[in-house]
């Protein structure tokens, strides 16, 4: 990893990972309205249970409270946000302005994403911006942090020191290309990766093996994406309707085999089994738990997955 003894950002997530702990991050989707209480209520379930909380940015192209605003609510509550930013909704000026703004208010982690196409969302006719793509966004945040310069080249007064994250999807074709894409993101300047939700463990093991062989997992931290299935319907929906998602038939069969009323418990059990394997897997440095609209279950999952208490690194 870095030869520098200092931190790049000093975020809690960076400290936990750099100290060699198995990281555990969560996720929170901002509300479709102005209710701060809703954010705070969800956040309470995650407090002390995860190292950082991803705040999604108009996820699935549906308008929600902006990710920076919900991130600030978390900072005020003493939680550490992982501020997500998609390339779909902002040009490079707005992006850089928002990065300066959130940093000023205490945000130290960012996840740089392309963003789902607007066609999926509640404004399907919106014009996608995509002034820069996720690779270029990573490089821009790194340049702002390490060179203290805006993308346009001018100096930044008090540059934002951001721990830079990005996504990786080992389950989208072409499979051969995915480790190379990860390599490009590392070259662009990514510090940590959170993967797409993993269900096809065979495919993921293969991806990590190649990434290990290429030396990629020594150059950035990999957090394996886990989403517990709440129901058979959810599993089928994810298999059939969500692009880039790989849900094997065995996953669905196992949920179908659960006793009546115990499907969700089975889903959690499966997630915990995955987390146990990730803890032992070379090249995996943590888990990103995306418990979609299930934040109140996170403490129970964390307990069952034996990732508590969370480490405190000074």
């Amino acid at each position: 990893m870095s030869t520098d003894n200092g931190y790049k950002s000093g975020s809690n997530l960076e400290k936990v990972l750099k100290a060699g702990h198995f990281a555990f991050t969560g996720e929170l989707g901002p509300p479709r309205g102005t209710g701060a209480e809703e954010v705070l209520e969800k956040a309470q379930h995650l407090k002390g249970v995860v190292d950082a909380v991803n705040i999604t940015d108009n996820q699935t192209a549906v308008v929600r409270m902006s990710s920076w605003a919900a991130s600030l609510l978390l900072v005020q509550e003493g939680l550490e946000p992982n501020f997500q930013m998609v390339c779909r909704d902002r040009n490079r000026l707005a992006m850089q302005g928002d990065i300066l703004g959130v940093y000023t208010h205490g945000v130290r982690n960012m996840l740089c994403l392309s963003g789902d196409h607007a066609k999926f969302g509640d404004h399907p006719d919106a014009k996608g911006v995509f002034d820069i793509d996720s690779m270029q966004l990573i490089a821009m945040v790194k340049q702002m942090r390490d060179e203290g310069k805006f993308l346009g080249g001018a100096d930044i007064e008090h540059p934002p020191k951001i721990f830079i994250g990005a996504a990786a999807n080992p389950f989208a074709e072409p499979y051969d290309w995915r480790p190379h894409r990860l390599s490009k993101k590392i070259d662009a300047g990514v510090d940590f990766i959170q993967t797409q939700c993993i269900y096809n463990m065979d495919r993921f093991r293969e991806f990590i093996k190649v990434a290990n062989d290429m030396g990629l997992t020594e150059k950035c931290y990999i957090l394996a994406g886990v989403t517990p299935m709440k129901s058979v319907g959810m599993a089928k929906y994810m298999k059939n309707k969500v692009p880039g998602m790989d849900v094997p038939d065995d996953t669905i069969k196992r949920l179908q085999g659960a006793e009546k009323g115990k499907v969700a418990a089975e889903g959690i059990k499966m997630a915990c089994e995955q987390i146990e394997e990730f803890k032992e897997m070379d090249g995996v440095h943590g888990v990103h738990l995306m418990a979609i609209e299930w934040e109140h279950k996170v403490p129970e999952i964390a307990e069952q997955a034996k990732v508590l208490p969370r480490p405190q690194v000074d």
């Binding site: 390339c87 779909r88 392309s114 963003g115 789902d116 196409h117 066609k119 996608g128 995509f130 793509d133 996720s134 690779m135 270029q136 996504a167 990786a168 999807n169 989208a172 074709e173 072409p174 290309w177 894409r181 490009k184 797409q196 692009p243 880039g244």
Partner: peptide, 15 residues
């Protein structure tokens, strides 16, 4: 559809 210069994104679906 996103005009990406560093694709493919994570949304490819069986090509």
């Amino acid at each position: 559809a996103k005009g990406l210069y560093n694709g493919p994104c994570g949304g490819t679906n069986l090509g």
